[in-house]
């Protein structure tokens, strides 16, 4: 409350007691902001700091917060000692393909469920939200082995549909329910089929929803660890699995560890900052995560 008023131009006539109170509430606000943001900022800045320092500084005590001689050596080492570029490519291919397939199948499904008011089908989405990812893995592991798919990116793309599809259906359902039906009705009266009404009228209007669904599906697919750790072979590893392997093999090479972690998560963090509005919209309506 005090903050909104503090933006107004100051008047000399304001009694000094009130001015002090305003100053106090402004300081309180700044303090609150610092308290709320510092945990997030501290961890990410510490990760950045570790990744830019040689290990002598990283394991010094008391800790060195600001690198005295920043170096990119840790990043070079990550890419030199393991095929990180290949893992990055795998991650990108899997997340992109899974997102596109989720949209292809999930957008019409969201429309159908919203139009037919088939909320029983939405229940399926909820159940998939409750099922632990691990419980799919035993059958998939056996199935992909039987089909000879267990060392291919296809195995990962198919399994990542379990992440992207529920998000897409959930978000799109909400968007299509909020859409005014008059425009489609007009198209139907003009003799268009329901498929044409969907493709030419409803879908273009729901483009913002598709952006939200695509962003969330991509991020949660990119971040997924559990499916790839079981199903990926040496050549089909995704970045989270690769970074986990760095952890288990190099306990005290902190600079390299932090550099690897940063490479994995930086694309997602940048995406989040740039499209935070869409992410906020998607998460508040759906509350979904992979």
């Amino acid at each position: 409350m005090g903050v909104a008023t503090s933006a107004l131009p100051r008047r000399q006539t304001v009694p000094s007691a009130l001015r002090w109170r305003r100053l106090g509430s402004r300081l309180g606000f700044l303090l609150g902001l610092i308290v709320l943001l510092s945990p997030a900022l501290f961890v990410f800045l510490w990760m950045l700091s570790l990744s830019l320092k040689p290990d002598v500084e990283n394991t010094a005590f008391p800790p060195v917060f600001i690198p005295t001689s920043p170096t990119l050596g840790n990043f070079r080492e990550v890419f030199a000692t393991s095929p990180f570029a290949l893992y990055a490519r795998n991650s990108f291919v899997v997340a992109t393909a899974a997102t596109l397939l989720s949209l292809l199948v999930g957008v019409p499904a969201g429309y159908g469920i919203a139009k037919a008011k088939a909320h029983g089908l939405a229940f399926v989405v909820l159940v998939s939200r409750m099922t632990p990812g691990l419980s799919y893995l035993i059958p998939w592991f056996m199935l992909f082995r039987a089909l000879g798919l267990h060392n291919t990116l296809w195995a990962l793309i198919i399994t990542h549909l379990v992440i992207g599809l529920p998000i897409t259906i959930w978000v799109m359902m909400g968007f299509f329910e909020d859409l005014h039906p008059e425009l489609e009705e007009a198209a139907l009266v003009d003799g268009a089929g329901i498929w044409a009404a969907f493709r030419d009228v409803a879908m273009p209007l729901a483009r913002p929803g598709m952006v939200v669904a695509a962003i969330l599906a991509f991020i949660f697919s990119w971040n997924n660890f559990i499916f790839a750790v079981v199903l990926a072979g040496p050549d089909t590893r995704t970045l989270p699995v690769a970074v986990f392997n760095v952890l288990t093999f190099e306990q005290l090479a902190w600079g390299k560890l932090a550099a690897a972690a940063l490479v994995v998560t930086l694309p997602v963090l940048l995406l989040t900052v740039f499209v935070q509005r869409q992410i906020v919209a998607g998460m508040t309506t759906g509350g979904m995560k992979g």
Binding site: V43, F225, V264
Partner: peptide, 18 residues
């Protein structure tokens, strides 16, 4: 708000490492 939601979007394994 974008900074505040960053932890939620970050890759869990990378965060676990830090």
């Amino acid at each position: 708000r974008g900074i505040f939601v960053l932890p939620m979007m970050a890759t869990p394994v990378a965060i676990a490492l830090v």
